[in-house]
Simulated scan of single mutants.
Amino acid sequence: MKTTTKEAAVAAPGKPFLMRVGIGLFGLGMLAVLAVFIMFAAGLENLPIWLSVAAGVITPLGLLLGLIALVIEARAKN
Rank of each mutant, 00 (worst) to 15 (best):
L51H: 06
M39L: 15
S52C: 12
K6Q: 14
I23A: 14
L28D: 01
P16I: 09
G56Q: 05
I72K: 14
A55L: 03
N78L: 09
V71L: 13
V36R: 01
K6W: 13
G56T: 02
A55G: 01
L70Q: 12
L67V: 05
L61M: 13
T4A: 08
G66C: 07
M30D: 02
L64N: 04
M19N: 12
I58L: 10
P48Y: 05
L18D: 02
V53Q: 08
A9G: 10
F17V: 14
F37S: 08
I58R: 01
G24R: 04
L44R: 15
E45Q: 11
I49C: 03
A11W: 00
P13H: 08
A12T: 13
F40I: 00
A69S: 15
G24K: 02
L44G: 00
I58W: 01
M30A: 13
V36N: 02
A42P: 03
K15Y: 00
L61T: 11
I49S: 07
M1P: 09
I68K: 07
E45L: 04
T5H: 09
G29L: 02
L34H: 03
P13M: 08
G27H: 02
L47Y: 06
I49W: 11
I58G: 01
I38V: 15
L70E: 11
N78A: 11
G43S: 12
G66K: 03
W50G: 05
G62A: 04
R20K: 15
M19I: 00
K77H: 09
R20Y: 00
A11Q: 11
V53M: 08
L34W: 02
L44V: 11
R20I: 12
F37M: 12
M30Y: 07
A12G: 09
A32W: 04
L44D: 10
V21G: 01
E7P: 00
L31W: 02
A9E: 14
R20Q: 14
F17E: 12
L61G: 04
L61F: 05
L64W: 03
K77E: 08
V57W: 04
K77N: 06
M19L: 15
P48K: 05
V21F: 01
V10H: 11
T3N: 09
A11T: 08
T59G: 00
V33P: 00
L28A: 13
I68C: 08
V53H: 10
L67D: 00
I23W: 05
V21D: 04
A42M: 15
I72V: 15
L25V: 01
R20N: 11
W50C: 03
